[in-house]
């Protein structure tokens, strides 16, 4: 069965025809061409397809497209466009080595964003909990957790300074450059 739905996608109003059985992942990737959202398993077990629906991180492979009627959807493509630069979470993943092969990255960043939007001061345990559904095979999670923690600090700082305080992309870079690289013995 075909039906027409309307929703907000990364700030834009969208109206489109869908089939009842389509998942949100299918709608995004195959129909709307937003390939940033990845399919790692199709069963809700890896988190690579995570997007945000009305502030909640969900597995888009398990979410019916029909259910986004009237809702706000954020995908990885929606994070950087409005400022013209990377979102602090994206920048933090870049600067802190949170990205290797990158296939888990969009989902990982969306899960982190859903958390930090609610609580930028989330501690490591809360971050681990929020990312528990996102599998990464490359990084061992260490630098991903560092990335989210650093992004949270940045976002909390920005909130504190109010909307006028623009993100200083140099801050995180400097932190990561200064981070102790383990002990170097020559």
């Amino acid at each position: 069965m075909t039906k027409t739905i309307s929703f907000i996608l990364n700030g834009d109003e969208i109206s489109c025809d869908i089939q009842d059985h389509w998942t949100l992942l299918h709608l995004l990737r195959e129909e709307l061409g937003l390939i940033g959202t990845k399919e790692g398993c199709g069963n809700g077990e890896c988190g690579a397809c995570t997007v945000i629906v009305d502030q909640l991180a969900i597995n888009s492979c398990l979410f019916l497209a029909a259910d986004v009627q009237g809702k706000q959807i954020q995908t990885i493509e929606g994070l950087a466009v409005h400022t013209g630069s990377l979102h602090p979470i994206q920048q933090s993943f870049v600067d802190n080595g949170g990205i290797q092969c990158g296939f888990c990255t969009p989902g990982m960043i969306m899960s982190a964003k859903a958390l930090l939007d609610k609580n930028a001061r989330a501690d490591k345990e809360a971050i681990k909990h929020a990312l528990a559904g996102n599998i990464c095979r490359c990084t061992g999670y260490v630098q991903i957790l560092d990335s989210v923690e650093a992004a949270g600090r940045q976002m909390a700082g920005n909130q504190g300074k109010g909307a006028a305080a623009a993100k200083d992309p140099g801050t995180i870079t400097q932190q990561s450059m200064n981070k102790k690289a383990g002990e170097v013995i020559t």
Partner: peptide, 18 residues
């Protein structure tokens, strides 16, 4: 130097093509 991975920004934006 701890230079970020060259393709990291592209991957962070969901633009890398697999």
């Amino acid at each position: 130097q701890r230079v970020p991975k060259l393709d990291a920004a592209q991957k962070a934006m969901g633009r890398a093509e697999y």
